[in-house]
């Protein structure tokens, strides 16, 4: 039963909520209890823009269960405007035409579902930033 885990990850998956260290200002995504940069324990919640540049990616051609209808698809590491790197699926594009440095933004999408009768998991995915 993965329901509690999915539910716990809602703030980061649905709203891209990150933790910002109140002492040194570094941002962690997902948020942490202790700042890895300065060791402080006071963190505030900030919402990431979801916009950034493709830093690296790979193309998945043999997809795991629950992702087969989307294959081939890209999984990218994206350098966000806020400075940190975030990994996520890159959709609404031809994965063979992606280039490092492509401008991306996020949309709310269906990530996976637990079979035909189980829970549906939602969250952010990256798409080309075309102003749509």
């Amino acid at each position: 039963m993965k329901v509690p885990r999915h539910w716990r990850e809602t703030p980061q998956r649905y709203r891209m909520e990150a933790g910002k260290c109140s002492k040194c200002g570094s941002i962690q995504f997902p948020g942490r209890v202790i700042c890895p940069d300065c060791g402080a324990t006071e963190m505030e919640t900030v919402k990431l823009s979801g916009k950034g540049e493709l830093a690296s990616y790979t193309v998945i051609r043999v997809a795991p269960t629950g992702f087969t209808d989307l294959a081939p698809y890209a999984v990218g590491v994206v350098q966000l405007e806020e400075g940190m790197r975030v990994m996520g699926q890159v959709v609404d594009c031809d994965p063979d035409n992606l280039k490092i440095g492509d401008r991306l933004t996020t949309q709310f999408r269906r990530i996976n579902e637990e079979g035909k009768t189980g829970m549906i998991l939602y969250g952010f995915k990256f798409v080309p930033d075309l102003g749509l």
Binding site: L70, Q107, R109, R110, Y122
Partner: peptide, 16 residues
């Protein structure tokens, strides 16, 4: 709709 789009995802993206 793409395979990962449904009524909930369309709603969220429009509402944003």
């Amino acid at each position: 709709p793409a395979p990962d789009e449904d009524c909930a995802t369309l709603s969220v993206n429009a509402a944003r």
